[in-house]
Amino acid sequence: MKFKLKIWRQENAQAKGKFVTYELDNVSDDCSFLEMLDQLNETLVDKFDKPVCFDHDCREGICGMCSLYINGRPHGNDSGITTCQLHMRRFKDGDTLVVEPWRAKAFPVIKDLVVDRTAFDKIIQEGGYVSVNTGGIPDANAIPIKKVDSDLAMDAAQCIGCGACVAACKNASAMLFVSAKVSHLALLPQGSLEAKERVDNMVSKMDELGFGYCSNTGACEAECPKEIKISNIARLNREFFVSKLG
């Protein structure tokens, strides 16, 4: 397969970036999008050019490190996957692919397609945990948990922190990310004791870091590689009201 790639290149955080167009031929339809970029980079190295920088690690859709906004969609034109799981057979031979970094004030570009997502870590540090120390814990079966609740918590806990929700949202809102963690812990008895402080602190951190406001467009849900539902956002809202009013 053959592709025309229009890729965002930016030297560093301070530099002004621009789109650069590359042509790439002999791409196997079995290879993943990132393997296609590897192939492009090989050709760049051949020419002593700097390869395109992009974040990636596990390449099996779970670490959440890969990003890329491809033709207007985070993680490209397939649903329920990350960019590393996107295969070239999803495109047509000869397609032009526009590849951009996640765009958000809270995710500044570091270089080329690499952005800084430490904002997510900072939000988690505000309360995305149950405050227990190691050791001195009662038996795991001491607290029975309804299977439905546990399953719902697991649905939310699957978030991989990739930031596609922020990238997809026209408002660059982080509500889906925050709501996934708040929901995961609010649904379990272990997490419910600190529910009030957690939701307060995480939401105010989210606001402080410069993410936009949710306007319920549902783009986050449509693009989330783990298909996390916006019902979690409604739960976050509920948790928030309860915490403020209670």
Binding site: Y129, V132, I137, A140, K146, K147, A153, M154, A157
Partner: peptide, 22 residues
């Protein structure tokens, strides 16, 4: 065994039976 206790206390959503146990 302590690991399982620890993880459950942290809120790790291990699979459960309908009776609510792991």
């Amino acid at each position: 065994n302590s690991i399982i206790d620890q993880c459950v206390a942290q809120g790790v959503p291990f699979a459960r039976e309908y009776g609510g146990l792991l």
